[in-house]
Design a protein around this nucleic acid. Structure first.
Length: 112
DNA sequence: GGCCTGATTGTTAGT
DNA sequence: ACTAACAATCAGGCC
């Protein structure tokens, strides 16, 4: 069995904050992201009165109820997105990795 | 070498 | 424009 529980699972305090990486390669969306994109309309259709918290909760709840096979297509999308992220990271590293302000682009032997 | 943590993704809707 | 739960994710960084 997979070791999912350990010490992680933060309470709930992150949100788009902090910004240490200047180039921020950004990560690939997760299956949930694609899932929401497709279900956002469906959930809203089922809960036209539901706002964000309601939809979000129901969405996640359903997501867990979904079978791995159901998530498969979403995983596939997330998979392709991951590849996309690879390009970002690659370019990100090619641009300085995570250094401060540095170009670092040895394209030619002599440029300066 | 292995573990962990942080940062990010997208949704909506209100402020 | 941002933030908030919802879940995944994953790669790099640190011991």
């Amino acid at each position: 069995m997979p070791k999912e529980s350990k010490s992680k699972a933060a309470p709930a305090k992150r949100t788009t904050k902090s910004k240490k990486d200047p180039a921020a390669p950004k990560r690939p969306l997760s299956a949930y992201m694609f899932f929401s994109q497709d279900h956002r309309d469906r959930v809203k259709a089922d809960n036209p009165d539901a706002g964000f918290g309601d939809v979000g909760r129901l969405l996640g709840a359903k997501w867990k109820e979904m079978s791995d096979a159901e998530k498969k297509p979403y995983n596939d999308m997330a998979n392709r997105d991951k590849v996309r992220a690879e390009q970002e990271k690659a370019a990100y590293q090619a641009n300085g990795g995570g250094k401060k302000g540095k170009k670092a682009a040895p394209v030619s032997s002599d440029d300066d």
